[in-house]
């Protein structure tokens, strides 16, 4: 029987792969839901901070923290958020490709770039890509904690304050919906103050110890929370991208199995027909 056994083993091995991919799909779906919850849980903190910072900004226009001052851009820092694990479709690669294009444009204008990577994939990519990686962190896990990010973010903010870097961007995947994620480059510092040109009513807080101290404290926490938010969002993207990728892998495996099954059945039938015709021919000869 021509290749019957080979086809059967092939089908068995594809079935095994299919089992793995469908299990991964289910796991990713469950994790995605949790990641989405986490994503929405981080919003109130940052929103509240933005309000308070906005207020402080208006109440004390004379005091400007260096995080709020625009300056000429000679060197840009990118905080790149990526996943630790692969098998999530083109999620990371789309992000890196977009960023690489942007960096190329910057370099042509004579602007230098530096990196800070979060996640294994970004580290691997930007090590090959060239450029200075100032700080990195990997293995944040499915439940990232903000305290693990403090150091990494601080390295970049320190570089900004000392004037080594004139602008910092966060690069991550934005969660549009389960099926699609959009690579995003967002400016972190200098903080772009948005809208609300005038204070509507005149009142101010009592500050303890003083406004400068509070504002400084708020700003660094705010920036950390923004980076944390993008890490969490990227995590949700990773899970949903993996879910979709694994779903299509499972579907493809199913198709492949069907095709092989057809080939196998044909081969089996042909073998039986041949055997019968041989027997008949043999009987006729006798």
């Amino acid at each position: 029987m021509a290749g019957g056994k080979e086809i059967r083993t092939k089908i068995a091995s594809i079935k095994n792969t299919q089992k793995i991919t469908s299990a991964m799909q289910l796991v990713a779906a469950a994790k995605m839901r949790k990641a989405q919850d986490r994503m929405s849980a981080t919003r109130p903190y940052a929103d509240k901070m933005r309000q308070v910072i906005g207020h402080l900004h208006h109440a004390h226009p004379e005091y400007k923290h260096s995080f709020m001052k625009e300056r000429e851009v000679k060197r840009i820092g990118y905080i790149i958020v990526s996943s630790d694990r692969g098998l999530c479709g083109g999620l990371n690669n789309n992000l890196f490709r977009m960023l690489a294009k942007e960096i190329k444009a910057h370099r042509e204008k004579g602007i230098e770039v530096e990196f800070c990577t979060i996640g294994k994939k970004a580290l691997g990519f930007f090590r090959r890509f060239g450029g200075n990686v100032r700080a990195q962190i990997t293995q944040l896990g499915d439940q990232p904690h903000i305290e693990n990010l403090f150091g990494t973010v601080k390295v970049m903010l320190d570089a900004y304050e000392s004037g080594d870097i004139d602008r910092i961007y966060v690069v991550y995947n934005q969660f549009v919906n389960t099926m699609s994620q959009a690579p995003m480059v967002e400016q972190l510092v200098p903080i772009t103050s948005e809208g609300e040109s005038e204070l509507k009513h005149h009142w101010d807080y009592i500050y303890e110890p003083d406004s400068k101290d509070v504002l400084d404290n708020l700003l660094s926490r705010y920036l950390e929370s923004l980076v944390y938010q993008s890490v969490v969002e990227n995590g949700a993207c990773e899970q949903s991208a993996r879910m979709v990728a694994m779903k299509s892998a499972t579907d493809n495996a199913g198709e492949l199995i069907n095709e092989l099954q057809l080939v196998y059945n044909k081969a089996r039938q042909a073998a039986i027909t041949q055997e019968i015709s041989e027997i008949v021919a043999g009987a006729a000869a006798v």
Partner: peptide, 19 residues
Amino acid sequence: DEAAAEEAKRRAEEALSGQ
């Protein structure tokens, strides 16, 4: 925070020399 920052830097250097 300072220590965490140092740690992050060290990790990056290690990863780069890991090339």
